[in-house]
């Protein structure tokens, strides 16, 4: 069975462009909609890219801003100035 990397975000205006960026950058990503939140799952690895989010919101964006809209996650985290990656790969 594949290991599932996952992120759950608030379902609000701040998170919507981030959700869009994730869906664009992570082929095969699955979406579970819940009232108030959305859970995004992908086998093995899921990446949030700064550049993809910035292209959607038209301003500079720091991956640490995810702190404001994240609800939960699964996977080993690697974060720097350009990306926020959840992965089970080693």
């Amino acid at each position: 069975m594949a290991q599932i990397a996952s992120i759950t975000l608030l379902h609000n205006d701040d998170a919507r462009p981030i959700i869009e960026a994730i869906l664009a950058d992570n082929p095969g990503c699955r979406v579970l909609n819940m009232p108030g939140a959305v859970k995004l799952d992908r086998d093995d690895e899921l990446v949030v890219r700064r550049a993809s989010v910035e292209a959607r919101i038209g301003r500079a964006w720091d991956p640490q801003e995810l702190q404001l809209v994240i609800v939960s996650m699964a996977g080993n985290l690697d974060e720097d100035d350009d990306h926020f990656t959840l992965s089970w790969k080693h």
Binding site: P35, G36, A37, K39, I70, V71, S72
Partner: peptide, 25 residues
């Protein structure tokens, strides 16, 4: 916190879902 707070949202308790997801962040 996740399905339960989502339940708060679904049951119209805007305040609890907000503290719930704020805590969950």
């Amino acid at each position: 916190f996740v399905p339960f707070m989502s339940g708060a949202a679904y049951n119209g308790d805007m305040s609890t879902v907000t503290f719930g997801f704020s805590a969950q962040s």
